[in-house]
């Protein structure tokens, strides 16, 4: 495999990791707020905060990893995306900053406050919406370069059906992933009341998720035919994705093996995300950046890959320790520790 392919694969895996852990986090914020206004907060908020408290910072690092890595492997992306994304990127940073710090302020600092809760819930939806713009832009047609300046066509962006379908897909996926994870977590904690509530959320958000996936697929066909055709060539990946979706729904519906249910959800998104990514190649930004022309120098690429492997050797044991202490420690999950 060439360096550029290793690089983009590693980055894509991390983006996938962020997609999962951040969705759990963002969705949980929304559910916590929703539970509060519907008077169910006593049922699930304890559960949510026990999981989130030890891991929110780790979630953030996944994101930092991705944007540092992409600029490292493909420095041209800093130039194009950096210029074009100044406004949406800055808004995303501000939302992330509000969310992260308010979470800490509320959770470790003062008592529950409605304003914090609202912001926590609202940013949980706004951040995925603003981050998903980067995906939309990568399809081309919104960013143009002329005479050394790069411009982003906001009008085209806000009137494009494709762009809105991506936003919609991002929102419902977040809620779906989060609800299925919380279902599993509640089952582990043996908390029947919470389990019934979040299981309902999970079943509810499944339909919009699959509908949104289909609409996005169709809208992409209108927007970027090259990518659409490539995706059709990889039809089996999307077929597997739908297959895992059905398994997940079945398990959650019959109310057994929630752990396997969540793993199926992860596989559902794994295949869809990698099918999307693989068919997107070789472009990172159509038609300006492709991975072969914009890859960094060989020495840097090798160094990055070595650091990546060394870093994983350090991280995986630490992450396992973290999970054993919090996620898979039955006493902790049940609130006894």
């Amino acid at each position: 495999m060439s360096y550029e392919l290793i690089g983009i694969t590693v980055l894509w895996i991390f983006l996938y990791g962020y997609l999962i852990v951040a969705s759990v986090d963002f969705g949980a914020g929304f559910f916590a707020y929703y539970a509060k206004i519907t008077g169910n907060d006593h049922i699930i908020n304890q559960l949510i905060s026990r999981y989130l408290s030890p891991v929110w910072e780790v979630t953030n690092v996944f994101f930092v990893f991705f944007f540092v890595g992409i600029v490292g492997f493909f420095p041209d992306s800093a130039y194009y995306y950096g210029t074009a994304l100044l406004v949406p990127g800055s808004i995303a940073i501000i939302l992330l900053a509000i969310r992260g710090s308010f979470y800490a302020f509320e959770n470790y600092g003062s008592k529950q406050s409605n304003v914090y809760m609202f912001l926590y819930g609202a940013t949980g939806l706004l951040i995925p919406a603003s981050l998903s713009t980067a995906m939309t832009l990568s399809e081309g047609g919104f960013i143009s370069e002329s005479g050394g300046t790069i411009t982003l066509d906001y009008l085209a962006l806000f009137t494009s059906p494709y762009s809105w379908s991506v936003v919609f897909l991002a929102l419902v996926s977040v809620l779906y992933i989060s609800a299925t994870f919380l279902t599993y977590y509640a089952a582990r904690a043996d908390d029947q009341n919470a389990l019934q509530l979040v299981r309902k959320y999970a079943l509810f958000w499944a339909t919009p998720t699959i509908v949104a996936s289909l609409t996005t697929f169709i809208a992409l066909g209108q927007h970027n035919e090259r990518h659409y055709d490539n995706m059709l060539d990889l039809w089996w990946m999307f077929g597997l994705s739908v297959g895992f979706f059905m398994i997940a729904m079945w398990l959650i519906y019959i109310g057994k093996y929630y752990g396997w249910g969540f793993i199926s959800v992860m596989l559902q998104f794994f295949f869809a995300f990698f099918g999307y990514g693989a068919s997107h190649l070789p472009y990172l930004l159509y038609p300006y950046i492709n991975i072969y022309d914009s890859v960094t120098y060989e020495s840097t690429a090798i160094a990055l890959i070595i650091v990546f492997i060394a870093g994983l050797l350090l991280l995986i044991p630490s992450l396992i320790l973290l999970m054993r202490l919090f996620l898979f420690n039955a006493d902790y999950v049940k609130g006894k520790k």
Partner: peptide, 11 residues
């Protein structure tokens, strides 16, 4: 990008 990448692992 190399030191920045390593920094992320430190984080």
């Amino acid at each position: 990008s190399l030191p920045l990448f390593m920094e992320v692992f430190a984080f």
